[in-house]
Design a binder for these strands. Structure first.
Length: 291
DNA sequence: AAGCTTTGACCTATA
DNA sequence: TTATAGGTCAAAGCT
């Protein structure tokens, strides 16, 4: 086992772009271990506090986590200079939680809530960086999931939903369990089976994104100028941008599915991305050209 | 002209 | 077995 890590999934699922000025990225899982990183203006790079390389399969076993474990994390509010999250799970053992922290090179500095009725909440800080820019990142947690999906809260979705991959909408459905319609997208990369389901509120805000299946290819690079004006518009059109509020993220969740961990990782892609501009190079270029 | 979205119909899983 | 809900297909229209 091993390959596409959950950090990889995050990176590929739009989590890598945390908004215009705030960039949340967890990246850099490699075949031979974790190289977690959270970057962006206003966010520290935890990369500097990375743990020893720890293959996820090995790590999960070492921490007593079964192969099909998954963890659900949701950001519920922001807090300066700390990354707060909590983990709760059917089998979220203490070691599992440590494992999770380990994945992100986070240091558990405080346990806030240990009530049985509520998920534990950890405040984690990047001790090396906390004197720098505030860390507007706070997570809450709830429940491990067993489904093989990755859910990303709207607040963690790139404002233009541009996660670097090409997506083609193939359906839309009003589902009963949600008042918001779901849009179904497939990855346009040949032979890639990755899909995502985007739930959009009536006001156009994305309320939830569910990723299904991992990409079997590296994230395409924007090497070409968008060929059509429509494409160009889509990439920068403010109307296509999700206007997010931090508050609305409180009830949203991410669930990480480790089945995707078995897929290939792309060391060259995530292991070498350091520049913020790597995230949305095309958008930045267009902005420069446009103004 | 290519690639995209829209949308109703159809398929499939599940209770 | 059947009803229902969720997911997908595919034709038509749009950019």
């Amino acid at each position: 086992m091993s390959s596409t890590s959950f950090t990889d999934l995050l990176a590929s699922s739009g989590v890598d772009s945390y908004g215009q000025d705030e960039d949340f990225r967890v990246s850099g899982y490699q075949n031979d271990g974790f190289y977690p990183e959270i970057t962006g203006s206003g966010l520290p790079k935890f990369k500097t506090a990375q743990p020893p390389p720890l293959p996820i399969s090995q790590a999960s076993h070492e921490f007593g986590i079964s192969d099909d474990w998954s963890v659900s994390v949701s950001r519920h509010q922001w807090n300066k200079q700390s990354l707060r999250f909590s983990l709760a799970a059917t089998n979220a053992t203490a070691t599992a939680k440590r494992f999770f922290c380990n994945m992100f090179s986070l240091t558990v500095s405080e346990t806030i809530n240990t009530s049985l009725a509520l998920p534990e909440t950890y405040v984690v800080q990047d001790l090396q960086k906390k004197q720098e820019d505030p860390v507007p990142c706070e997570f809450a947690a709830h429940g491990l999931r067993s489904d093989r999906q990755v859910k990303v809260p709207s607040s963690m979705v790139s404002r233009n939903s541009n996660d670097g991959y090409g997506w083609r909408k193939y359906g839309q459905k009003q589902v009963k369990k949600s008042e918001n319609p779901r849009s179904y997208f497939k990855c346009t990369y040949p032979n890639c089976v990755s899909k995502k389901i985007v739930e959009t509120a009536s006001d156009g805000q994305i309320t939830e994104i569910i990723y299904k299946g991992g990409h079997n290819h590296p994230k395409p690079e924007f090497t070409k100028r968008p060929s059509t004006s429509a494409n160009a518009r889509r990439m920068v059109d403010p109307s296509s941008v999700v206007s997010e509020t931090r508050d609305q993220s409180e009830n949203s969740s991410i669930s990480f599915d480790c089945s995707d961990l078995e897929q290939k990782s792309f060391k060259s892609e995530y292991g070498e991305v350091e520049e913020e501009e790597e995230d949305q190079p095309e958008i930045k270029r267009l902005k420069r050209e446009g103004g």
